[in-house]
Design a protein around this nucleic acid. Structure first.
Length: 566
RNA sequence: AGCGGGGUAGAGCAGCCUGGAGUGCUCGUCGGGCUCAUAACCCGAAGGUCGGAGGUUCAAAUCCUCUCCCCGCUACCA
């Protein structure tokens, strides 16, 4: 039977070649913008999704490189630094640490962690720009823009305030009026004032560099039509929309000091627009961490999976591929673009400015385990339409599914093995593993399509199988009349617990490692992997009970949390 | 305004692309079982004219047209 399983497994590897072409899997998470603390919606959309995916690929025997980092350039960072009376460098250093702590607390298993403000990223950004320039994909245009005489600087829209031309509220920003919500052009503002120095800015002509997307579009379209079959629906529809409208030249420079310098004479006072160097940051961060970066970014053996929220799609499906295609250097382009919709907070949008929702650092302070947060976030991952974070739902899913189904199954099996068989594993016949086999195949194929939420539901089904099996066999009764029959049941359940530890590993890694500890596994979960879990547990192995895996969330706690977070 | 996503049992969803008996999941409700386990687990029942109206078809939740609601986004906040 074991041979049969292995054969089945091999056939499956061949079949799923549709999704994975290369031997190596490169995974990126959208780089969160540093000057804010990420909220739960940001986390599940990119960082956590990429993490679960990377973990799954590792337990399924793939060689994985998971790239994560922070996006640190741009107007907002420079502006925020001014507000906090810091230099941009000091500001991003401060926030980088906040981000890193959050990712670490959520058990993000990144292989490379880096920053778009590194010297490596500046170099590769300049290199890619030069190639685009040499290949004729860069153009130059003049525009009129607000300029501050005293500071001798052009002002990007956030640096200007004035009276709204529509509702006449004061304090409207150059890009938008907060009072009436209208989008503005800075030149429309009545009585504009520079936020740098309080002077009245004047309109002045200046030059900017543009990337000639229309010229790259044919190559881009060709690539897109081959690749899109593997993308999430929302990613395809957003991209098609952009292509249908026809791409326009896009400005890639800004009048700022904080950013990557432009490697051309006469451009010393401008930097690249942060959306130029941000996606290139995936490569920059890899270079920052790995000397073998070309084996990942310039190799045909690699499959690239990119995770992000839906707002980020055009930058990954149009901009970044266009930059790379334009270099003609053969960089790896995205194979699977996995985007999510939004996670809302109790029917509202998460909002830092309005203080709505739970943020990365809050989760830690609740005292609820990282695994538990991860479980719920994956459980409501917005894979098809927006979803809600709700405290009542959080409690019910955690208590009923994570604790009641998975946690309780492992606990009751280990407890019975201790009580009836002195914590020594009896001999099994792999019956339960065989039953789980087809479900595990479904689980894997869901993961290969980046349907992480559905893969988790499938894992719950497998765990449920264990509880049903126990109920049917009733070893606690059989042990009195036919101990060897009960022993067989328990042995089979112990094997399922081992399998569960592997398949839940992408979601709740700490608990899964604990199960391996309880079961006395010598190797790591990754080393054993999904296929290894089907080898079962040999007779006579000593099992070591170590208490429950997850705590229930009490009603009282939920009431407190609801109150605390409004 | 334009674009996008939704409207499926009391609640939340999946199913729609590739039509085939309203099929399924989680919670809630009701009834039963079990007592190894974190009052857990297992079984069963009730409950829906699939937002509305037309159309295509032997057959529509699914495809097409129109219509009524909800929600997001609109590209120098990245």
């Amino acid at each position: 039977m074991l041979l049969f399983l292995i054969l089945f497994y091999c056939i499956f590897i061949i079949n799923r070649g549709f999704f994975v072409v290369g031997k190596k899997v490169l995974v990126t998470s959208a780089l969160p913008y540093v000057n804010n603390v990420p909220h739960l919606g940001n986390l599940i959309g990119s960082v956590l999704s990429a993490d679960a995916f990377a973990r799954f690929m590792r337990v399924d025997g793939r060689e994985v490189l998971f790239v994560l980092g922070t996006d640190e350039h741009g107007t907002t960072a420079e502006f925020k630094a001014m507000e906090e009376k810091l230099t941009p460098r000091e500001l991003v250093d401060k926030y980088f640490l906040i981000h890193k702590n959050i990712y670490d607390w959520f058990q993000t298993s990144y292989d490379c962690l880096g920053r778009t403000s590194s010297k490596e990223n500046a170099q590769i950004t300049q290199h890619i720009f030069k190639k685009l320039y040499d290949n004729g994909y860069i153009t130059e245009h003049s525009i009129t823009q607000l300029y501050s005489e005293p500071s001798k600087k052009f002002l990007s829209d956030r640096f200007v305030e004035g009276e709204c031309p529509y509702c006449h509220a004061s304090g409207a920003r150059g890009d938008q009026c907060d009072a009436c919500g209208k989008l503005l052009d800075p030149s429309e503002l009545i009585k504009p004032i520079s936020k740098l120095d309080g002077s009245t800015p004047v309109l002045k002509e200046t030059k900017h560099l543009y990337i000639d997307l229309p010229k790259i579009q044919p190559d881009l379209v060709e690539w897109f039509s081959e690749s899109k079959s593997k993308w999430s629906n929302i990613a395809v529809s957003v991209t098609e929309q952009w292509l249908k409208q026809g791409l326009k030249e896009r400005c890639i420079t800004r009048d700022l000091e904080w950013g990557v310098k432009i490697p051309l004479e006469g451009w010393e006072n401008k930097v690249f627009y942060s959306w130029f160097d941000a996606p290139i940051g995936y490569i920059g961060i890899t270079i920052e961490n790995r000397s073998d970066w070309k084996d990942w970014w310039m190799s045909e053996d690699v499959s690239l999976y990119q995770f992000m929220g839906k707002d980020n799609v055009p930058f990954h499906s149009i901009m970044f591929p266009a930059f790379l295609i334009g270099t003609k250097e053969g960089y790896k382009l995205v194979d699977y673009l996995a985007s999510t919709d939004y996670l809302n907070y109790e029917d509202k949008k998460f909002s830092k400015s309005k203080n709505i929702g739970v943020f990365g650092d809050d989760a830690k302070d609740t005292g609820i385990a990282s695994d538990v947060w991860r479980y719920y976030l994956f459980r409501v991952r917005p894979e098809s339409g927006d979803t809600q974070f709700e405290w009542n739902d959080f409690q019910s899913k955690v208590n009923n599914e994570l604790v009641g189904n998975f946690g309780n199954f492992v606990n009751r099996v280990v407890a019975q093995n201790e009580k009836f068989f002195s914590s020594v594993a009896p001999k099994s016949n792999h019956e339960l593993l065989e039953k789980a086999g087809p479900l595990v195949e479904e689980y894997k194929s869901l993961f290969y399509s980046a349907r992480i939420r559905d893969a988790l539901s499938k894992a719950n089904e497998i765990s449920s199988l264990g509880n049903k099996y126990l109920q049917e066999k009733q070893p606690w009764i059989e042990v009195k009349t036919n101990p060897s029959g009960a022993a067989l049941t328990i042995a089979n359940c112990l094997e399922l617990a081992k399998l569960l530890a592997v398949i839940y590993y992408p979601f709740t890694p700490t608990a899964c490692e604990k199960i391996f500890g309880i079961l006395g596994e010598k190797e790591s979960i990754i080393k054993v992997g999904v296929s290894g879990a089907f080898e079962g547990i040999e007779e006579g192995r000593v099992i070591t009970p170590k208490g429950i895996l997850f705590e229930k969330i009490e009603d009282k706690r939920i009431v407190e949390l609801k109150q605390k977070f409004g």
